[in-house]
Amino acid sequence: MPRHLMNPMDLTVEEIQSLIDLAGDIERDPDKYAHACDRKTLATCFYEPSTRTRLSFEAAMYHLGGHVLGFSSADSSSAAKGESVSDTIRMISCYADICAMRHPKEGAPFVASLKSSIPVINAGDGGHQHPTQTLTDLLTISSLKGHLDHLVLGLCGDLKFGRTTHSLIEAMSRYEDVEFILISPPELRVPNYITEMLGKKHLKYTEVQSLEEVMPVLDILYMTRVQRERFFNEDDYVRMKDFYVLDKPKMELAKKDMLVLHPLPRVNEISVEVDDDPRAVYFKQAQYGMYIRMALILTLLGIEV
């Protein structure tokens, strides 16, 4: 039975550490891995558009010496003819060794994994899970801070609908002495089940509205975009999207070694003037996204270098 990845919490802390260690080794010595996936093929089955995730999966496979095939929208696949995900994956299993699947419907990659004879990676299913983003975030924090424990993690923006923040909170809640500061307007507060989970684990968390107020205590600031498609009313969206804008004056309040992360794409929640600040690591984060996907592909294929 192939091993799949559907949810970041499917991985134990030890398994995540192994992936982080492997990604670190790939970053240090990429040549060592340049032919690790010779004659292996990754299928990228993207039923909805994506820039970063699809390209980083493809880049990851190319950097491992492998091949890539696939489609980048449902219109260009047989889904447009009404083929089920189960049938598509059975066909893909004949052509590829591993599959990364993004689908607008929640649970679609899981359905694929039930019928697949090759490993399936969930590359994002609606508002549900996006495990490789969480792994990217963990690798970024671990690589640039040197550890995942003993941190004050601030998450700012849309904490209600943002799946990346929910997954990151769950993943980080497994490390010792991590304090969460949840910064959002009242309308976009984190769902109850997240604060209940933090409460059950006796973890320290605070919900605040003011970003300026908490800037000095943060070790990590995870900014998020307010997504237009989540709002029924354009006025509400416009009001929310301008609620937090990280700019130079706010960065001056922060610690010298604080890090700013963002899953990207950003709209206006981080001013471009912040990009040159060495603490702004969101583009570096995108690079880590490729390394962790390389590590994941190798691990799921059982390839050791």
């Binding site: 089920s84 995900v85 189960s86 419907k105 929640e106 649970g107 359905v111 508002g127 549900h128």
Partner: peptide
């Protein structure tokens, strides 16, 4: 009842 669930489009599941 989740309209975003895969069961909403794949009737045989």
């Amino acid at each position: 009842k989740n309209p975003r669930c895969i069961t909403s489009i794949e009737q045989e599941l």
